[in-house]
């Protein structure tokens, strides 16, 4: 990327990059070495990393463009998970009774796609009914105020779900009812493989969208300079609406894709929310590119903790790691003075 070569002219940034790349390089080496010991570590890191990258990417996008630290991001995950379980339930009956392999392959997609759409619409409603209302009245202490607002949204959505749909888990054992696949000596359930493929495709599409399309560029422009973007004829409200919609759609997609692992309950979004926040604090707030890499890094820390220590410590170890990073690099692994959602 040409941007990187130019950044290297700035000594301060070079120092940042070195620290970051050493950390990431070490992580990659450890991951590969451990794969000889237990291949499932590598597989699990890649599978959950893809999902965390999607969650964190959306969270970082909303912070980068709109300066909103979204505490309700987990509830959009929950919404996706719930929608998918409601839509997939009846479809599953149909596909199970049919003999057609094609139907069995396609069966899960309506639920996932509807969940994505519901997430998108929910994001747009949220922007119009909450953030836009506050923006019209006051932009003073915007970051803290919106953080509180999203906390309110989170409480309302969680408890409404509890009142309407109850507290019991709506899960499925698997989306794709096929024999596990064997890749390089690792047996892999089809669901895991599909989740990884979905994540990779969506992340690539998302990256291309931000970098190469007119609308994506407009979003990045708003994240860097709102006045400048307005001068260029970009409608801020339009960009805000799309940003929250996209971010929510990504969260809902993650929730729907992971339904076989995390059954839909009112609080199913809490763990993913926490992970997404680990990632963005680690990567630097509002940096989508960093958040995507950080998603895999945090997934790795979690998988290693679960494998070598115990599941109970999965939250404690990342916190300790983040504290270490903040001590040495206060603005996060990829944080820099330049504000933008994609650029380092």
């Amino acid at each position: 990327m040409t941007a990187a070569t130019n950044l290297r002219q700035v000594p301060l940034l070079r120092r940042y990059l070195t620290f970051t790349w050493i950390t990431l390089g070490l992580a990659a080496v450890i991951l590969v070495l451990s794969a000889f010991n237990s291949p499932s570590l590598l597989v699990n890191t890649l599978v959950s990393g893809g999902m965390w990258a999607m969650m964190a990417g959306g969270l970082a996008l909303v912070f980068g463009v709109m300066n909103i630290p979204n505490f309700a991001h987990g509830e959009l995950f929950m919404l996706g998970s719930l929608t998918a379980s409601l839509v997939y339930g009846p479809i599953r009956e149909l596909t199970l009774s049919s003999k057609s392999d094609v139907l069995k392959w396609l069966g899960p997609f309506p639920g996932i796609l509807v969940a994505c759409a519901v997430g998108f619409v929910a994001g747009i409603i949220l922007e119009g009914s909450v953030f836009r209302q506050l923006r019209k009245r006051s932009r003073e202490s915007w970051v803290m105020n919106t953080f509180l607002l999203t906390a309110g949204v989170s409480v309302i959505m969680q408890n409404t779900d509890m009142l309407v749909f109850g507290n019991f888990p709506r899960g499925i054992s698997r989306y794709w009812d096929f024999k596990p696949i064997n890749i390089l000596g690792v047996t892999l359930a089809v669901d895991r493989l599909m989740v990884f493929v979905i994540a990779m495709v969506v992340i690539a599409a998302f990256a291309l969208f931000l970098q190469k399309t007119r609308t994506g560029r407009a979003m990045r422009a708003v994240s860097m300079d709102e006045t400048g973007a307005q001068m260029a004829g970009i409608s801020l409200n339009g960009v805000y609406r799309l940003t929250l919609g996209l971010s929510s759609a990504l969260a809902a997609l993650a929730g729907a894709s992971l339904l076989w692992l995390l059954p839909a309950t009112p609080t199913v979004g809490q763990a993913p929310l926490l992970v997404a926040w680990y990632v963005v604090i680690l990567a630097g707030l509002g940096n989508v590119q960093g958040a995507i890499i950080g998603g895999f890094l945090v997934a790795m820390i979690q998988q290693f903790t679960a494998y070598y220590v115990s599941l109970d410590w999965v939250d404690v170890v990342p916190t300790a790691f983040i504290i270490l990073v903040l001590l040495f690099k206060p603005s996060g692994l990829f944080g820099s003075e330049v504000k933008g959602v994609w650029e380092q």
Binding site: T2, A3, R214, R217, A218, R220, A221, M224, D225, T227, G228, A229, M231, A232, G233, I234, V338, K339, G340, W342, E343
Partner: peptide, 26 residues
């Protein structure tokens, strides 16, 4: 109506080419 402000309001983390492309947003 085009406007060039005194503080310029460029997009610092975009290339010159991209800045111009955003300028042509409409």
């Amino acid at each position: 109506i085009g406007y060039v402000s005194e503080s310029l309001n460029l997009f610092p983390a975009m290339s010159i080419y991209e800045n111009l492309l955003v300028g042509a947003h409409t």
